[in-house]
Amino acid sequence: MKSDHHVILRVVSKWLIPIIALYAFYVQFHGDYGPGGGFQAGVIFAVAMILYALIFGVPAAMRAVPPVFTRSLAAIGVFLYAGVGVWALLQGGNFLEYQALFHEGPGGHHGQHVGIILIELGVLFGVAGAMLTIFYAFAGRVAEIRDEDW
């Protein structure tokens, strides 16, 4: 009886959610060339999951992306970011000095590219994980969105 109510929403969002998630990765990996980067990509990815949770229910979303995964993801993101800094330290440079990652002189781009891709991934994980954790903390307290709230 419940599925009758939101059948259009469900059908449309089934199409949209993968596209939104894909767009998040486009924003992530295109950040060097256009507007965007880890923050925006992380938020867009989190919004895709939140849309899923709003339409198919929070328990279904929690089965797909468990809360323990989102908070671990946030921690992994921060660790990845800081890890790049420590890697640069171990290579003899300053903290987060990407130039030192592969012992390049000025004008060498390899270290910059690798470093920036890694820290942007760290930002993506950190932001997406933290945002989903916050959403679950709020939404997990109401078991289901009632029909009169739509």
Binding site: V78, Y81, G129, M131, Y136, A137, V142
Partner: peptide, 26 residues
């Protein structure tokens, strides 16, 4: 930017500590 990511992470953890991780409803 690393500080910002740490702030976002801290916010997520702080909200979860206040409200719970939401796993009870699951």
């Amino acid at each position: 930017t690393m500080g910002e990511v740490a702030v976002v992470f801290t916010a997520g953890i702080a909200v979860s500590l206040l409200l719970g991780f939401g796993e009870r409803s699951l």
